[in-house]
Computed example of a mutant assay.
Amino acid sequence: MAGLDAFGTQLQRSDMAGSPTFTAIANVTSITPPALARETLDMTTHGSPDQYREYIGGIKDGGEVSIDINYDPRLHDPLVADLDDDEPRDYRVVWPGTLGSWEFSAVMTGFEPDAPHDDKLSASVTFQVSGKPVLTPGS
């Protein structure tokens, strides 16, 4: 298989209610899902075999999520309130069709609108993931 079509992928935002409802953020043109990473701890000693460094796994990081949107202040300005929240909010990336989802908590760290004289209103929004994302496989 050569690949999968990304068309239809959504970033959804929770209302944080007891039984949360997730709503797709409108007019998203590009989504960069959580960039998972892990630090390593150098365990090399003077006795390491053949003078090769040795490592073990360290702290993991859920990374950042970013989206680009066709900016509509009427639809997107309420999102700016997330920038004022100290507590993480729940979000999820829903893959197209039945490919599953990635759910995560995150703090919004950036909302950058752009209004060029010769193009559309757009904005870039960035989130820092807090904790471990939950990956739900599709069918």
Score class of each variant (00 low, 15 high):
112 E>K: 13
77 D>A: 13
53 R>T: 03
124 S>N: 15
47 G>K: 14
86 D>P: 04
75 L>D: 14
45 T>Q: 13
34 P>G: 09
68 D>W: 05
134 V>T: 14
109 T>A: 00
25 I>P: 00
4 L>E: 08
105 S>K: 10
110 G>V: 01
40 T>D: 06
48 S>N: 08
118 D>S: 12
45 T>E: 14
20 P>H: 02
133 P>E: 04
3 G>R: 05
6 A>T: 08
47 G>S: 13
26 A>W: 06
71 Y>P: 03
113 P>C: 07
63 G>Y: 05
118 D>E: 11
45 T>I: 06
111 F>K: 02
52 Y>M: 12
12 Q>H: 08
23 T>P: 03
105 S>E: 09
128 Q>I: 01
34 P>Q: 06
46 H>W: 12
77 D>L: 15
24 A>L: 02
127 F>A: 00
112 E>G: 07
57 G>V: 03
35 A>R: 15
69 I>P: 00
97 G>N: 11
86 D>R: 15
105 S>C: 12
95 W>S: 00
61 D>N: 11
97 G>P: 01
117 H>F: 13
17 A>Y: 04
119 D>I: 02
107 V>Y: 03
41 L>K: 14
77 D>F: 15
40 T>H: 09
83 L>G: 08
30 S>W: 08
41 L>D: 12
50 D>Q: 15
88 P>Q: 05
93 V>L: 08
71 Y>I: 02
133 P>D: 04
126 T>I: 10
57 G>P: 00
8 G>E: 07
66 S>C: 10
39 E>R: 13
42 D>K: 05
83 L>W: 13
